[in-house]
Design a protein around this nucleic acid. Structure first.
Ligand code: ZN
Ligand code: ZN
Ligand code: ZN
Ligand code: ZN
Lengths: 131, 131
DNA sequence: CAACTTATGTAATAACATTACATTTAGATT
DNA sequence: AATCTAAATGTAATGTTATTACATAAGTTG
């Protein structure tokens, strides 16, 4: 699934996320885009779904919010696991990849004949600036 | 935070989760406990919060559901990170701990002066039986 | 153009969670 | 036992997040 040309709605949602300093909820995005003609949640959710397919956006499961991928050019998401730190004070998100963790989880799954799909790793806490 | 005697509501919620074959949503628990006098979501959410504090229940962030801890006697949750595999077909959940992953995440956080709080690791996929 | 697929618009509803406030219960103190 | 206090509970209302259903429009292909 490679990122082709984005539709207008997809581009608007991605721009909103890219401009934001912190993750945004779907309804926050909706409010930001009302001036661009957005009227209903589904317009946001549909765009978000495609953007996630393209590897341009990640969903943070533990806070029901979305962020633009930190390095979309590397096709980071297709190479497996993505992990995040999330500051509960300022909202700052750091995205990272760790092959050792990836292999460790893969080994655990393999040992049990568990076929892994999407994996979530999210560390909530406080960033250096908010210590 | 050690598990003292549970209240009636807490015990009912824990029993419901322990008896279940798969994670339950708060509203599913509510429905199961209507016969025991439960009337409102808050009764469930309050019990769940305490049970999580006691280390007897885990919340699965990626599916908005709750499970009884697989080994509450070991005080597993206080010793840090808990990870899960979640079968998207049958709902079966396996809870596990991995010190290498734990150390690896701690090192990443430490390098960035990120003070970690609760960490979520959830692998969604298909279990051996549902391959 | 016709047929097909993808994207969009809109309304309604479902699913998940919290706020606010009144009341009760269980333990501790006197 | 009477009092005080902290924790737990009951209830209603509301807030937040996400999906279903159906109609319309736009792009793609033969
Ligand atoms: Zn990414
Ligand atoms: Zn911060
Ligand atoms: Zn546990
Ligand atoms: Zn299964």
């Amino acid at each position: 699934m490679t990122a082709q040309q984005l539709t207008r709605n997809q581009a608007l949602v991605l721009d909103a996320l890219s401009a934001a300093e912190a993750p945004l909820s779907a309804y926050t995005i909706l409010d930001k885009l009302r001036g661009d003609g957005f009227r209903a949640p589904l317009q946001v959710y549909r765009a978000l779904e495609k953007l996630q397919d393209f590897g341009l956006v990640h969903r943070l499961e533990s806070i029901n919010a979305f962020v633009a991928c930190a390095h979309p050019d590397e096709d980071c998401c297709s190479h497996g696991l993505t992990a995040f730190t999330i500051c509960e004070s300022c909202g700052k998100v750091t995205e990272f990849h760790d092959h050792m963790i990836e292999e460790r989880l893969a080994a655990f799954a393999s040992d049990r004949n568990f076929r892994p799909g999407k994996t979530t790793i999210e560390i909530r806490g406080h960033c250096a600036g908010c210590a």
